Simulated scan of single mutants.
Amino acid sequence: MTSSVPWQVRLSAGTEAVQEEVIRWYQETPHGQAYVPDMVWGTLQTEAYATVILGQVVDFLGVPDDVPAGVARRMQRQRVLYDGEHRYDVVLGEQALYTNIGGPEVMAEQIDRILRDIDLPSLTLGIIPAAAPVNMFPAHGFNLYGDEVHVELISSAVDVTEPSEVGHYREAFRRLSDAALHGGEAKELLHKALSCWDDIRLA
């Protein structure tokens, strides 16, 4: 089954309530997977980066402005990276390191945070280089929570539970992960992006 809920409905009580929902998903899913092509995965976001993102959501959708509360909950959900009970496989597009969220100071801090956490036992992080061959047509981002897929579109959030459809997402993630660089090679891409933002910041 596939269900779609408009963001104005899902966010009618503000951003904090949706973050609570995500925390529940994380707590109930020992092993999650996420593909994020052009921004940083929410559970690795710094407070400054998340503040800009949620502020943009509120501004665009015209939903209640509770950004500080939403950011606080987003920071709370990051505890799953350190509790020793969860594991996450995450694939970012290289573009995520260059999409300007908040300016060079915010971006440099954000990439430095990823470099600090990339070796966590709970995290397997891959980055697909911009020019890498990928055995998968370009696709939107998605999160796999057990037997459910969550997709965030511009106008709505979509939850997919039909097993055959979930299977497509699992195969897509496998192909995307195969195209990504991991370990030291991923760190090289991160350091390259950090140098870029540092150059802009110091110019």
Rank of each mutant, 00 (worst) to 15 (best):
A131T: 14
W7V: 01
E148P: 04
E47I: 03
G102M: 10
E85A: 15
Y169T: 06
V40M: 09
K187S: 02
I118Q: 02
R116Y: 09
V106E: 07
E148T: 14
L123T: 01
Q56T: 00
V40D: 03
Q8N: 15
D89L: 07
T43I: 15
Y26W: 13
H168W: 14
Y169G: 08
W25L: 13
E171D: 14
A17S: 14
N143L: 12
W41L: 09
D112L: 11
A72C: 02
A17W: 03
V90T: 06
R73Q: 14
S4W: 01
A13W: 04
Q56L: 06
I154Y: 14
E85I: 13
V71W: 02
G103E: 05
T124F: 10
R10N: 10
E28Y: 01
D65A: 13
S156L: 04
L144F: 00
H191E: 15
F60R: 15
P68R: 09
Q76V: 12
T43Y: 04
N100Y: 08
V57G: 00
A157K: 12
A13C: 06
L44F: 13
D147A: 03
Y49G: 06
Q76I: 09
M39S: 04
V67L: 04
A34P: 04
A96C: 08
Q27E: 15
L61G: 04
V91P: 00
A132C: 11
D65Y: 07
L120M: 12
I23Y: 05
G42M: 03
P37G: 00
N143T: 06
G126P: 11
P68E: 08
L194R: 06
R201D: 15
S155K: 13
R77S: 12
D147G: 05
L11G: 05
Y98G: 01
L97M: 12
M75T: 07
H150A: 13
A131M: 14
F137Q: 15
E47M: 00
P104T: 07
T99V: 06
I111H: 09
G84N: 09
Q27W: 13
S12W: 01
I128A: 11
E94V: 03
V58S: 02
Y82S: 15
Q27K: 13
V52Y: 01
S4F: 14
T29I: 12
P138E: 08
V67I: 08
F142E: 07
H182V: 10
A186V: 04
L44D: 00
V90I: 14
P64T: 07
L44E: 06
G126Y: 04
G32T: 07
